[in-house]
Amino acid sequence: MEGNILEAVKLMVVGMATVFAVLFIIIGVSNALIAFVNKFVGEDEKPAAQPAAQPAAVNPAVAQAIAQAVNVATAGKAKVDAIKPL
């Protein structure tokens, strides 16, 4: 039993340290990737066509929130082209 607890303590220390280490390294490498892409890869192409002009009645912040919600809910498969009041 005591051996089990010692092993569990060891696993806790090693496990938490490894999880932190892996995520720290991923964060570090991702930052390096961002710097690399910014320096050596050209800027992303802008979308060819902007969404149709929003009617004046639709608040831009609301339109953006709806567009983001649709993007998350459809995993990027759909996009909002226009929002028209009923």
Binding site: T18, A21, V22, I25, I26, V29, S30, L33, I34, V37, N38, V41, G42, E43, D44
Partner: peptide, 22 residues
């Protein structure tokens, strides 16, 4: 972020490599 698309392609490759090594 100048080119998020390229970054998103590189990210899974880099993460897999890091995890696979550690």
């Amino acid at each position: 972020f100048k080119n998020m698309r390229v970054l998103k392609i590189l990210f899974p490759i880099a993460t897999t490599t890091i995890v696979a090594i550690i």
